[in-house]
């Protein structure tokens, strides 16, 4: 597994380093901008907006994790498919359950690290302005966005690894509908009760790319 992780790191390190830098810069921009506005208009104005108008101040990050998840899968799996490297991977003297599983696990771990960094940075920066009640509301509101990033990564890998174009389109439609569920409400903390179910579901759909790999292996082109 370590060898696979190392291989994936060599292939994708620039993408993940850039993604981490980009997402952290975006978080930094959002929070620095908020700090600047607090200095201009007073923090009380923003506390009131959070308490009475459901403001969460980080709307700019709404689709960022989703796009990162999609980009991570595309960067990792499209070259594999285009350059037929996936065939080589599947012919390695080990079960594809381990090889493809390691590749997926690597992507998920990297995304988790980036997302945790993002949420920690946001938490620390926001805590200097707001009470913990407001900070936890903002982070809980952002959690489904980040979870959608992980789901998007797995679903996109499922589509990329699928050998047949018609099936790819069908998989794409199912994926789009699934991802829509993560963006059904702008109300803060609307997903609190649903989040554990979504998290378990994200774990379960990690099995989907193996259907595509099996189809690839059996030559269903």
């Amino acid at each position: 597994m370590n060898a696979f992780f190392y291989k994936e790191w060599l292939k994708n390190r620039w993408f993940y380093l850039l993604s981490a830098a980009f997402s952290l810069l975006l978080c930094l921009y959002v929070t620095l901008n908020l700090h600047r506005l607090c200095n201009l208009r007073g923090a009380a104005h923003f506390w009131e907006a959070a308490l009475t108008k459901d403001a969460i101040f980080i709307q700019l990050l709404h689709y960022m994790p989703l796009l990162l998840g999609i980009a991570a899968a595309l960067v990792q799996f499209i070259p594999e498919m285009l350059q037929k490297r996936i065939k080589l991977t599947l012919h390695l003297p080990c079960n594809y359950f381990y090889s493809i599983g390691s590749m997926l696990l690597f992507g998920l771990c990297m995304l988790c690290c980036i997302f945790l960094l993002n949420l920690s940075a946001l938490g620390i920066a926001l805590r200097s302005i707001f009470a913990p009640e407001i900070v936890s509301r903002i982070l809980l509101t952002a959690l489904p966005w980040y979870l959608s990033g992980l789901t998007a990564y797995v679903l996109c890998a499922w589509i990329c690894l699928e050998p047949n174009w018609k099936r790819r389109v069908l998989n794409g439609i199912v994926s789009a509908c699934v991802l829509r569920i993560f963006f059904m409400s702008d109300t803060p903390e609307a997903y609190n009760r649903f989040l554990p179910i979504l998290a378990v579901y994200t774990l379960l759909i990690c099995a989907l790319p193996f259907i595509s790999v099996e189809r690839f292996k059996t030559g269903k082109d």
Binding site: T187, Y191, I197
Partner: peptide, 11 residues
């Protein structure tokens, strides 16, 4: 998924 009673998302 969207409940009209509490604006929360739950199936």
């Amino acid at each position: 998924f969207l409940s009209p009673l509490d604006k929360k998302v739950f199936p």
